[in-house]
Simulated scan of single mutants.
Amino acid sequence: MCGETCPDVFELSDGRFAVIGAERTAKVQEEHPELRELDAREIIVVVDRWTLIYAKPFIPDH
C-alpha cells in the first residue's frame, strides 16, 4: 500500500494469516541461537512493531 516494501499482515480465505516482511533467517538465527530449529520450508520474517500493533484490532481473538 505504501508503494515500496511495506510489511503487512492479512487474513487468507481459509482463516490463516499471511505476513509480508523482510526475510532475515540467517541474521536472527545468528543473534538468537536459542530459537528452535526451522523446518526446511520455514524462514524467519521480521515485521516491525508498528505493523503488528496496527494489525491487532483486525485479528480475531478466536
Results as ranks from 00 to 15, higher is better:
Gly3Met: 05
Ser13Ala: 14
Val19His: 07
Glu31Ser: 04
Ile59Asp: 07
Glu4Tyr: 15
Glu37Gly: 08
Leu38Asp: 04
Gly15Met: 08
Glu30Lys: 08
Lys27Thr: 10
Thr25His: 10
Glu4Lys: 15
Ile20Met: 13
Thr5Glu: 10
Met1Trp: 06
Cys6Thr: 03
Gly3Lys: 12
Phe17Ile: 10
Cys6Pro: 00
Glu34His: 06
Arg36Ile: 01
Glu11Cys: 11
His32Trp: 02
Thr51Asp: 07
His62Lys: 09
Val47Lys: 00
Pro7Tyr: 00
Arg36Asp: 09
Glu31Tyr: 00
Asp61Thr: 07
Tyr54Gln: 13
Leu35Tyr: 08
His32Lys: 09
Ala26Val: 04
Asp14Glu: 12
Cys6Gln: 09
Phe58Ser: 11
Val47Ser: 14
Ala18Ser: 13
Trp50Asp: 13
Arg49Met: 00
Pro33His: 08
Glu42Cys: 08
Thr51Pro: 02
Glu31Trp: 00
Ile53Gly: 13
Leu38Ser: 09
Ala22His: 09
Tyr54Ser: 14
Asp8Lys: 09
Tyr54Val: 09
Ser13Met: 10
Leu38Gly: 06
Ala55Leu: 01
Val47Glu: 04
Ala55Thr: 04
Val19Ile: 15
Cys6Asn: 12
Pro57Met: 06
Ile20Glu: 14
Pro60Cys: 03
Leu35Gln: 01
Asp48Val: 05
Pro60Asn: 12
Val45Thr: 14
Ala40Thr: 11
Asp48Ser: 05
Val46Leu: 10
Phe58Lys: 06
Val19Gln: 06
Pro33Glu: 06
Leu52Thr: 13
Gly21Asn: 09
Asp39Pro: 01
Ile44Cys: 01
Ala18Tyr: 04
Gln29Glu: 09
Arg49Ala: 08
Gly15Cys: 06
Ala22Tyr: 03
Leu38Tyr: 08
Asp14Gln: 09
Arg16Val: 01
Val9Trp: 03
Glu23Ser: 07
Phe58Glu: 13
Ile44Leu: 12
Phe10Cys: 11
Ile20Ser: 12
Leu12Glu: 13
Arg41Glu: 15
Thr5Asp: 12
Lys56Trp: 11
Val46Pro: 01
Phe58Pro: 00
Met1Leu: 13
Ile43Met: 10
Ala18Trp: 11
Gly15Phe: 05
Pro57Phe: 06
Pro60Leu: 02
Val47Tyr: 00
Pro7His: 05
Glu11Trp: 02
Ile59Pro: 04
Leu12Val: 02
Thr5Leu: 14
Lys56Leu: 14
Ala22Met: 07
Leu35Ala: 01
Leu52Val: 15
Tyr54Asp: 15
Glu23Ile: 09
Lys56Asp: 15
Ile44Lys: 02
Asp8Cys: 08
Ala40Cys: 06
Ser13Asn: 12
Cys2Leu: 11
Pro33Ile: 03
Glu11His: 07
Thr5Gly: 15
Ser13Arg: 14
Val28Met: 04
Lys56Tyr: 12
Val19Arg: 03
Met1Arg: 10
Pro33Asn: 05
Ile53Phe: 10
Arg49Lys: 07
Glu37His: 11
Glu11Gly: 12
Leu35Thr: 02
Glu34Leu: 03
Lys27Pro: 01
Leu35Cys: 03
Asp48Lys: 10
Met1Gln: 12
Phe17Lys: 10
Thr51His: 02
Ala55Asp: 08
His32Pro: 00
Asp48Ile: 03
Pro57Thr: 06
Asp14Arg: 06
Val19Gly: 10
Ile20Gly: 08
Ile43Leu: 13
Tyr54Gly: 07
